[in-house]
Computed example of a mutant assay.
Amino acid sequence: MSRSIRLLNLLQLLREYHHPATAQKLAEHLNISVRSIYRDIECLRAQGVNIEGSAGLGFVLKEDFLLPPISLNDTEVEAVFLALNWLKRIPDTELKQAAHSVLAKLNAVIPKSKQELLDATTLHSIHQWIATDEKTVEQVRLSIRHEVKIEIQYLDERGKLSVRRLWPFALGYFNDKILLAAWCELREDFRNFRLDRIQKITLFEERYPQFKRHLFQQWWQQEIQKKANHS
């Protein structure tokens, strides 16, 4: 890892702590030595980063000079933080970590009046997800991002296990479950799959032959037509 990347990682980690963090704690999180933490903090201070604290007491970021001020009205602030707090509870490790990171960045730059608004808010996201393997969720999300085929062992609502080769192109977060929209090679048609019912998943390097946005458009038109036929 380059020194510049290490400094950025340390700066981001300090953003996420609202109270002083010891060098030992920072070192364990970043998987580097305590001595490196001390050197990197002094380097950040030399570049103008306002880090308070000392060895034995811990360090805290008092002002973040890298992030520009942003202008949000009260409702926008509530909307952003409510959405991010919802995301912090989703069964996807990387998205949860991303939500914590974005919240820390926003907390570093919003005006004091907006921070007081958030401290006093009684808006909360309360959600209960069906138990889902977070590694599976991450793998599905990455397969969509890279537009590659996957193979899953899937347990349907009747308890029947099948193996499907899929072209995954969209995820939907519905109430208590996550649904995958994909082209199924077995059925030669679009199918939806609940991620909590996936027993095993394998990612391939092979890209599927269409762009995910085109698959999504075709699937969406098919869904609209189904609703029209049932109305």
Rank of each mutant, 00 (worst) to 15 (best):
L186D: 09
W86E: 15
D119T: 10
S231L: 14
S4K: 15
K25V: 07
E94Y: 12
L179M: 05
F174Y: 13
E78L: 15
V140K: 10
R164I: 00
S101H: 15
H100A: 08
L106I: 00
L10H: 01
N31S: 13
Q217V: 09
E42M: 12
N31F: 02
L8D: 13
I126F: 15
Q153F: 08
S71C: 11
R145I: 09
Q115S: 05
V34E: 10
W219T: 03
N107W: 10
N73D: 15
L7H: 10
A83Q: 02
E206G: 04
S4W: 09
E157A: 08
D156Q: 03
E188L: 09
F211M: 14
Y38T: 06
V137S: 13
K88G: 02
T202M: 06
F59M: 06
R35C: 00
Q199M: 12
I178S: 04
N9L: 14
H124R: 12
W129H: 08
I178Y: 03
L123F: 12
M1D: 01
A99C: 02
E76F: 05
V49S: 02
P168G: 04
V49D: 02
Q199C: 11
L13R: 07
I126Q: 14
H124L: 12
W219A: 07
R207Y: 04
S101G: 07
A21P: 00
L11A: 10
E28G: 04
R45T: 06
A55H: 09
Q24A: 12
K114G: 05
L186M: 13
Q24D: 09
C43I: 04
N229M: 11
S101P: 03
I130C: 03
I5Y: 04
N85R: 10
F204K: 04
Y17A: 08
H124K: 13
I41A: 05
F81P: 01
L61N: 06
N9E: 14
W219P: 03
H19N: 13
R45W: 02
L61P: 04
A131F: 09
D176L: 01
E151S: 12
Q97I: 10
V77W: 04
L95F: 10
W220M: 13
Q47Y: 11
W167A: 13
A23H: 00
E151F: 00
E147M: 11
K149D: 01
N107G: 15
L106E: 00
K96N: 11
H124W: 05
